[in-house]
């Protein structure tokens, strides 16, 4: 699918900045500056729509309704007004997320990427994270060194991390998900399992990161 992103923003300076940011990030931005021009566009031609709410000629909320009737494309709202009612209304009308002005370009990119990630891994049987493959159905883990022999606890830990690949997972969440509460379900026990898991992962262990203050993360690696 193309990387086209529709930007509906009437402010010239901000619009140009967003276009530059999106272009540098590898997207193909299509910028329209008023509601009338945006109304005639086909939402399914874009991967994400970034929509300002205060537009000349129309109100962004009306455009959002129009797009939602035709398409499920993720819509990200740009909001200058710190108004809860507006945000809630936009979310209820089907907006996926919003960014409040002022924002850093990176923040906007992060939210766009979050929108694109949304079709999540639920229902996926096999997850690939860098060089590590986790088969949830067969309960198998394959790395560059071949299939690993993991204990059920170690597999649960790795499966949870793989499902949340790229995201930090709290120690407590791992303890709750993988350890048996009738035995020694503590953070210390978890650390022991993690240590064993790391040694079994061998050269791929670098993908299993410790996250300060939180717990662990399985990343794609370098």
């Amino acid at each position: 699918m193309s990387n086209r992103i529709l930007l509906v923003e009437d402010d010239l300076a901000l619009g140009q900045q967003v276009v530059d940011t999106l272009s540098q990030a590898g997207f193909d931005p299509h910028w329209v500056q008023d509601g009338d021009a945006a109304r005639g566009l086909e939402p399914d031609d874009y991967r994400v729509i970034v929509l300002d709410l205060m537009l000349p000629g129309t109100y962004g909320m009306d455009l959002l309704k129009r797009y939602r009737v035709k398409s499920e494309v993720p819509v990200l709202i740009l909001s200058a007004r710190d108004d809860t009612a507006d945000k809630i209304r936009a979310l209820k009308l089907g907006a996926d997320d919003y960014v409040t002005k002022p924002f850093f370009p990176e923040e906007l990119l992060a939210r766009i990427q979050a929108c694109l990630r949304r079709p999540n891994l639920v229902g996926t049987e096999r997850i690939v994270v860098g060089t590590i493959q986790v088969d949830l159905k067969r309960r198998e883990v394959i790395t560059t060194e071949g299939a690993l022999s993991l204990t059920p606890v170690e597999f649960e830990i790795l499966a949870l991390l793989a499902r949340r690949k790229g995201s930090a997972v709290a120690r407590d969440a791992l303890v709750d998900a993988a350890l048996d509460p009738s035995h020694d379900a503590s953070r210390r026990t978890l650390d022991v399992h993690m240590s064993r898991l790391r040694s079994k992962l061998g050269s791929d262990a670098a993908q299993l990161e410790t996250v300060w203050g939180i717990g662990y993360r399985l990343s794609e690696g370098s």
Partner: peptide, 9 residues
């Protein structure tokens, strides 16, 4: 500064 986040599944 390392800013990390964890939310439940």
């Amino acid at each position: 500064i390392a800013l990390e986040v964890a939310v439940p599944e």
